[in-house]
């Protein structure tokens, strides 16, 4: 290990990490919103919309982000739609993440037995109250593990942004290896930076997961 090399690369990695974080979190924030909306639309079968959302979810859950990005970034301009690389990254991550979040959240909603709604209503709660006080807390808590997994999955997926020329961590490492052949240092820094980004998420995720496990009774 050559520490001087590591030091001289540090600013580049920091910049790359910031880009990874920026696009990653923007994409994740949007995908949570998108996923939530889609899940509600699907679960409560909003007319027309739920079909469209269904097609969207199937399309984006069943194709790789890399291909989606290639299509968005290289394919679409051929028919006159040009999107900037960063926007493309956020858009791609949002579309992919939205589809995943929607499914996780929907399966959370579906895991709640109808009897709960019936009991809540028979206790005199309104439909909204039932959703707010009974369904959502349980749905969220039972989809938390999947949510956390999705967030980590999406952050990791940012590594494919290199394909559309975004200078994220993966691209920076590959680029520096190509330029100066300091493979070991570059890969080591890559691992360390991903650890720095993803470890906190993983730790916080599992704490939240434990704290929110109030859906399973009998323990």
């Amino acid at each position: 290990m050559n520490w001087e090399v590591i030091q001289s690369y540090l600013p580049l990695y920091e910049k790359a990490a910031l880009l990874t974080l920026k696009i990653g979190w923007l994409g994740i924030a949007f995908s949570i919103v998108l996923g939530f909306v889609c899940a509600i639309i699907r679960h409560y079968k909003v007319p027309v919309l739920h079909r469209i959302v269904g097609i969207y979810i199937e399309l984006f859950r069943n194709t790789p982000l890399l291909i989606q990005l290639f299509f968005l970034y290289f394919g679409l301009p051929k028919i006159g739609i040009s999107i900037d690389a960063e926007v493309c990254g956020v858009l791609g991550l949002t579309l992919l993440g939205g589809a995943y979040m929607a499914e996780s959240f929907r399966s959370g909603l579906e895991s709640i037995e109808p009897i709960q709604t019936e009991s809540a209503m028979s206790l005199g709660m309104s439909r909204l109250q039932t959703i707010w006080h009974v369904i959502l807390p349980q749905a969220i808590s039972s989809s938390v593990p999947a949510f956390v997994a999705n967030i980590i999955f999406l952050l990791k997926e940012t590594s494919v942004f290199s394909a559309i020329s975004l200078m994220d961590l993966m691209f920076t490492a590959k680029d520096l290896i190509g330029l100066y052949s300091k493979t070991i240092e570059c890969l080591a820094m890559l691992v360390v930076f991903y650890l720095l980004i993803l470890l906190p998420v993983s730790i916080i995720g599992s704490i939240v997961e434990k704290k929110l496990r109030f859906a399973g009774f009998g323990e």
Binding site: I152, K156, E157, T158, S159, V160, M170, A173, K174, T183, I184, L187, L190, V191, Y194, L195, L198, L199, V201, S202
Partner: peptide
């Protein structure tokens, strides 16, 4: 689990493909 959970597959690919030989 932690290693796999937080390392992007692309990083693992690079480490295995180029790293094991070294």
């Amino acid at each position: 689990l932690e290693i796999v959970r937080i390392m992007p597959q692309m990083v693992l690919l690079f480490i295995v493909f180029f790293g094991t030989t070294r």
